[in-house]
Design a protein around this nucleic acid. Sequence first.
DNA 1: TCAGAATTGTTCGGATCCAAATCATACGGT
DNA 2: ACCGTATGATTTGGATCCGAACAATTCTGA
Lengths: 189, 189
Amino acid sequence: MPGHRSIAEAEKLAAARLGGIPVRHDQMAVVANIYRAASAVRQHLENSVLRGVDLTWTAFVVLWVIWIWGESETRHVAEEAGISKGTLTGVARTLEGRGLVQRADHPTDGRLVLLSLTDEGQELMQRLFPAFNEEEAFVTGQLSDADCRTVADGLRRVVLQVEENGEQRRQDLLGGAAPAPRRSGRRKA
Amino acid sequence: MPGHRSIAEAEKLAAARLGGIPVRHDQMAVVANIYRAASAVRQHLENSVLRGVDLTWTAFVVLWVIWIWGESETRHVAEEAGISKGTLTGVARTLEGRGLVQRADHPTDGRLVLLSLTDEGQELMQRLFPAFNEEEAFVTGQLSDADCRTVADGLRRVVLQVEENGEQRRQDLLGGAAPAPRRSGRRKA
DNA sequence: TCAGAATTGTTCGGATCCAAATCATACGGT
DNA sequence: ACCGTATGATTTGGATCCGAACAATTCTGA
């Protein structure tokens, strides 16, 4: 099982292949390992605690957000869960069909939809979260509490950087030009 | 765009909701931020350098792996790219159709398929990687080189923990019972 | 030698996922 | 009241994505 073992070598190969163009090695390693860790953690949790209750990672995250924050507008749930509004519509539909989530109209604003957990959803999360948190502790088992805080803080700064300066950065890169539309996706009727 | 701002609060809410059951806060924060950072980074890169050349994140990673390692067996590419074999088949088909990747039979083992970049694929990566690396530097812009090494090292330990002990851990959790099959997926004919 | 076990890539069912288009409602100014 | 704009959620097209089933090939041992 290669992968992580070969990052240093991969960087050298990349540098050689670029013929002397400088490479930001440390920054590249952060991005590579963020994604590698995210995949590993997600896979482990899906195949341990989530599989048994037939929940995908995304479905669990959505449940978790609603569980923690209580009845919420869908746009906030999508934001917190890190998925698009359109994706949330589908996931919420699935969860609603399984009796874990219910939707309700906003009392004053007819555009909004509120999501909340059903009793069954509440019970599921109460039972599931401790097991989930246990595995979070497992995957970080090689890190001390202080290490965890350091890593989490570093990651938080990455998230902040993208959220606060990403939009500006993208505009600068594209030079004001409209971003190329996705090749896939809906077309005008 | 809340999210990161509320993690501490979310943890308190979670603890309250669990009614005194201890929560591993630091570990929870690491997992939450790993995933948040992965989403943010992926989104930024897709919407900056990748969109213009009509590549998804996964397609780029696959190209990168083949570019760095040269002609490779598909199983190794899937492993390095962090996707399943089945997914790679589809992605490789897409990239082959766009003339960026070519496949070849293994000279001695008829089961294997080798993937390599076409000339066009080579040129694309040569042009694309510097821009990609530039954005890797941007998203980590709030971290010093030393910070980057620290964070990358911590993440590497998470990956290692899952890779080296994850399988055993899952078996222990399930108590030897066969893992529940996915609800979705192919059925016996 | 040759039948069963192992390994590899592909097919396939079902669910996600994004972003553009679209539909629906609320709000602004006149 | 009315109309244009802003802001919601949903629909839709295309591409992923996983993992089980499957087909093809190689390996193993008696």
